[in-house]
Structures are given as structure tokens and as C-alpha cells.
């Protein structure tokens, strides 16, 4: 971190700053060096078709098909060439939520005829139903398959372009503009907050489970809100000064080629195929997991 207001190079700010509340970034400009299939794809078609595929992947009912979806997403990730590390971070973000399923489901899933059940200890009050594991695995696999797809979806075109594509797909303009403004100010506030946090830290504040922590955290958040409210006014005035009339100018143009459409159709068909497979249980190993 920098002491106080930063005036040094961006490098020292973004990297040196405490890793508190690290916010991952999405690409801001076109990357010249890497040009995979995903990078060249018209963002509008990319978003629409990948989103459709995601919904298909999220609605499968067997572990086998869900794993197949995972494989498809993972290969997309490989083709897009985005770093695995970032995809792993996404999975780590869901880990706690999914772990809960693995712990809780085996203990609470109602016993159906044909379920394998193990009883712990003497009493019957702790029962482990192995069907619970497979249900949890299904949920985890589905979540993974969508999460893995996010990197190829978001990291292969600049974020503003992605948002503009969303606008072309029918998402209301104001929402898209707001998303871009938010994306900008999240980083501003993060820096502001970590400076404040460091300021409290060097005066010996260490959070714990006590009244004082709650009080100081309240001050801290209050400070953040007060400062951000003051900033909203100034940002708005700065916009007015430069001729803002309620609409953000866009200069993005999209062009689609037959290849783009073919790719999109391929993904949609893939999604439908996965659903059909799932419905008719034709996968060789689907019965195993069932």
C-alpha cells in the first residue's frame, strides 16, 4: 500500500497494496497477442450461446452428463487459453457453499428404497446416506461446469465490449452504463478502503469478536458511505460539465460472420444434446452414478 493518497506508479498501488479485498480485474482493452476462437467471436453471439449452454448444463439431472458438461467447459477454457489460476479462483469462491452440500446432504437426505446407508456409532441418530454424496456431486459438477465457462466468456473480450454486447442483446441501456461505472468505482473505493484500513491498523486496531470491533467497523463503513455519497455528487457534476444528458455515448460496433453464427449454433446444439443425453440416459456410465 501507499501511505495516504497515492501518487506513485500504478504498479506500487495495485500490487503492493495489501491483499485485503483483492478484486480481480477483467480485461480492459483488446489483447493483441492472443487471438483464439473465443477472442474473435462476436461477443453478442458468444454471450447468448454460452448463456444458453449454461442453462442447459445447470438443468441436467445425472452426474454423468454434468461431468460431460464440465469436460466441455474445461476444453473451452483450454481453447480460450485463459489462465487456469483464475478459473481455479472462481471454483475456490464456491467451495464453501458446495462443501456444505457434501457435509449436510449425506446426513439429511431422506432414505429412499435402494439407498445405501451407513450408521455411525450405536444409536441410529447419525445416518450417512450415500445417495447424498451423489446429489452433492451432481450440484458441484453443475456449478463447476458453469463456473469454468465464465472465464472464456468474460476474459476473451474487453469488459466494456462485453457490456455493450449485453446492451445489444436487449439488456436495458441504463443497466449497462451503471455496470461500467460500478466496475470503475469498485477499484477507487477498494483503494480508499484499504488506505483507511491500513490507517486503523497502524494505530493498533485488530478486529476481534467484541463490541469495540463492531463499533469501529461501523465507523469504517460509515466513513466509506459518506465519502462515496460525496463522490456521487461530484461524479455527477463532472459528467454534467462534459455535456452528459442522461445517455452514455457508445462507439462500439459489432459485426458477425457466418463463422460466429456457426459457433453459436454449435454451442446451442451442444446444450440441447446434453439435455437429450441426460433425459434418455444413453451415457454408458450414467447408471453407475444414479
Amino acid at each position: 500500500m501507499k501511505l495516504g493518497k497515492t501518487s506513485e506508479t500504478s504498479r506500487s498501488r495495485s500490487r503492493g497494496e495489501q491483499e485485503l479485498w483483492a478484486v480481480p480485474e477483467l480485461p480492459g482493452v483488446e489483447e493483441g497477442r492472443r487471438q483464439t476462437l473465443f477472442h474473435r467471436w462476436d461477443p453478442r453471439i458468444k454471450i447468448a450461446s454460452l448463456l444458453l449452454f449454461s442453462f442447459c448444463a445447470a438443468s441436467v439431472g445425472t452426474v454423468g452428463t454434468a461431468l460431460l458438461c464440465c469436460a466441455v467447459s474445461a476444453s473451452a477454457l483450454m481453447v480460450a487459453g485463459t489462465p487456469w489460476r483464475l478459473a481455479a479462483r472462481r471454483i475456490a469462491a464456491m467451495a464453501a457453499f458446495l462443501a456444505m452440500f457434501f457435509v449436510v446432504l449425506p446426513l439429511t437426505v431422506p432414505v429412499l428404497p435402494g439407498d445405501q446407508v451407513a450408521t455411525l456409532g450405536h444409536g441410529t441418530w447419525i445416518q450417512i446416506n450415500f445417495r447424498g454424496f451423489s446429489v452433492a456431486a451432481l450440484v458441484a459438477a453443475k456449478a463447476m461446469s458453469v463456473a469454468l465457462l465464465m472465464e472464456p466468456l468474460l476474459r476473451t473480450s474487453p469488459f466494456p465490449r462485453t457490456v455493450n454486447a449485453l446492451a445489444r442483446l436487449g439488456v436495458p441501456d441504463p443497466l449497462c452504463q451503471m455496470l461500467l461505472i460500478m466496475y470503475r468505482y469498485v477499484f477507487v473505493f477498494r483503494h480508499e478502503m484499504s488506505r483507511l484500513w491500513v490507517g486503523m491498523n497502524v494505530r493498533g486496531f485488530r478486529p476481534g469478536t467484541n463490541r469495540r470491533t463492531i463499533h469501529i467497523l461501523g465507523n469504517f463503513l460509515g466513513m466509506l458511505f459518506v465519502r462515496s455519497l460525496e463522490r456521487t455528487e461530484r461524479v455527477h457534476e463532472a459528467m454534467l460539465c462534459r455535456g452528459f444528458t442522461g445517455r452514455f455515448p457508445t462507439r462500439e460496433s459489432f459485426r458477425s460472420t457466418p463463422l460466429d453464427w456457426a459457433l453459436g449454433a454449435g454451442w446451442v446444439l451442444g446444450g440441447v444434446a446434453v439435455l437429450l443425453l441426460d433425459r434418455y440416459e444413453t451415457l454408458p456410465f450414467s447408471g453407475v452414478f444414479r
Binding site: 501507499k2 501511505l3 495516504g4 493518497k5 488506505r195 483507511l196 491500513v198 490507517g199 466513513m223
Partner: peptide
């Protein structure tokens, strides 16, 4: 002790 450039970052 540290005195920050922007005292707003030091008043909580």
C-alpha cells in the same frame, strides 16, 4: 507512528 498524506484516510 505514521502520518498519512491524506488525513481523510486516518480519521475514522
Amino acid at each position: 507512528g505514521l502520518l498519512f498524506q491524506d488525513s481523510a484516510d486516518q480519521t475514522v
